[in-house]
Amino acid sequence: MTTTTDTHVAAPPGADPGQAPRHKVRPSMSGRAPQDTPAGKWTYILLGLTFLLSIYPIYWMFVIATSTDAALAEIPPKFLPGGEFARNLAEVFSLQDVYFAESLVNSVIVSTVITVSVLFFCSVAGFAFAKLRFRGSRILMVMVILTLTVPNQLGIVALYILMGYLPGEGGWNGSLLAVIVPGLVSAFGVFYMRQFILGAVPDELIESGRVDGATTMRIYWSIVLPAVRPALAVLGLLTFVGSWNDFQWPLITLGGTDYPTSMVALFDLASGNYVLYRRVLAGAFVATVPLIILLFVGGRQIVRGIMEGAVKS
């Protein structure tokens, strides 16, 4: 319920020095809070090391993805990328029963539909819980929070059986619907949007909208939605990353079909009798690139979403 301190979260890099408080009374280092103490040489060295360890496996993936088979047997390990990326990738795309190209399209469809739907349904529900009065709102909100704590992976067997009974030939298993529909809403999303709307939309604004005769949906469109754009960006990015990377349920319901998501296709690529890691990692790299781009573009929002989530929970 605490309103997070936006100044400390996701401050632009250039703003850092100005963020130091003016009341530097004591010269002693330990008199300041840690976040006001300038980082020393060792802090930078250790953080740099952490960064290298974080990026190394991703870089290594690229090195192998661009190399020949021989690169895997080099000692010491090959450090620079080779020039075989196009060839490796072409092989991945041409593999008969992996459906790699289709899988990328499927992943884009799944993640996009889920993200758009989560943003819409969670923001309207969050709006209702934050700003509208209705009987049972409190208990219903408690239910939303409770559902956050139940790992729904535990109902996975029953979910599979349920999908088999849904309308359509042979049920929904093996079709993208089985992956998309359960992801259309998220308890975290409702909770997150509610928290944000509570703080971001003043009650008076909604009241004045009511006085002007605006309907609830009208208020949502013209007052709430513009005010919650930052939260939508955060939730959208987290949802997209989550659904893109989802593996267990897609494997169960889409495994062995012609409609895998890219994660399932990677699994197929790494299975079988004749596995070539330059191919496997070329595929893995292609499936990773969209998310690295997202992190590059929206990293600040993702960091903010994760950090706000921590303080609020």
């Binding site: 593996f247 994660m263 990677l266 990692l281 499936a287 998310l291």
Partner: peptide, 9 residues
């Protein structure tokens, strides 16, 4: 953000 399948491979 790296897909778990990719990093595991």
């Amino acid at each position: 953000i790296t897909p778990l399948t990719a990093s595991t491979l």
